[in-house]
Design a protein around this nucleic acid. Structure first.
Length: 159
DNA sequence: GCCAACGTTGGC
DNA sequence: GCCAACGTTGGC
């Protein structure tokens, strides 16, 4: 069995907050709406069930890490791409050959809110992909060292 | 609302 | 294959 990987996944709380995710059956949400190939490829090619996930709130007054979860499914097509009424509709995609896939993410627990501004103050996290200038990727890899360090910051086991 | 960063599109 | 124009992301 390959080693577990770790990911930071951005969600706009207006669309799906950590509380919204916790309110879902089995605290699990399909990570719909990703329309960037690099982020899609992480879900399609690199993620494995059980990988660690930092649930991150973006596009809001105070962005930051809101909880910890895990990858809970293998990749499958994002249904919103086929829905003409969805903002994520993609007319160039087809059911025969879907362009966009997603994974399910299961929230394990809400953490204390670790704001982006605080993340930036930790030297140990200086190389985190999400902190890089101009970063726009909605899914970024987290190194095991960063994951462990964040585990101590968030006051929990960092399994 | 501003704007830097950067991905995508399409003409050539 | 290049690259300018354009659109989007997302922090501030």
């Amino acid at each position: 069995m390959p080693a577990k990987s770790f990911w930071l996944m951005k969600s706009e709380p207006d669309e799906c907050s950590i509380d919204d995710a916790l309110a879902m059956p089995r605290q699990t949400v399909p990570w719909f709406g990703v329309r960037n190939y690099q982020a899609r490829n992480f879900m399609r090619d690199a993620m494995r069930i059980g990988d660690g996930v930092l649930f991150y709130h973006s596009g809001c007054a105070e962005p930051g890490i809101a909880g910890i979860g895990e990858v809970a499914s293998t990749p499958y097509p994002d249904a919103t791409q086929f829905d003409p009424k969805s903002p994520y509709h993609d007319a160039k995609s087809s059911r025969e050959s879907p362009r966009w896939v997603l994974v399910d993410v299961r929230v394990l627990r809400k953490t204390r809110y670790l704001a982006l501004a605080e993340l930036r103050r930790h030297e140990a996290l200086a190389d985190m992909a999400v902190l890089r200038k101009g970063n726009r990727l909605s899914i970024t890899p987290v190194t095991p060292a960063e994951w462990r360090y964040l585990g101590t910051l968030l006051g929990s086991a960092s399994r």
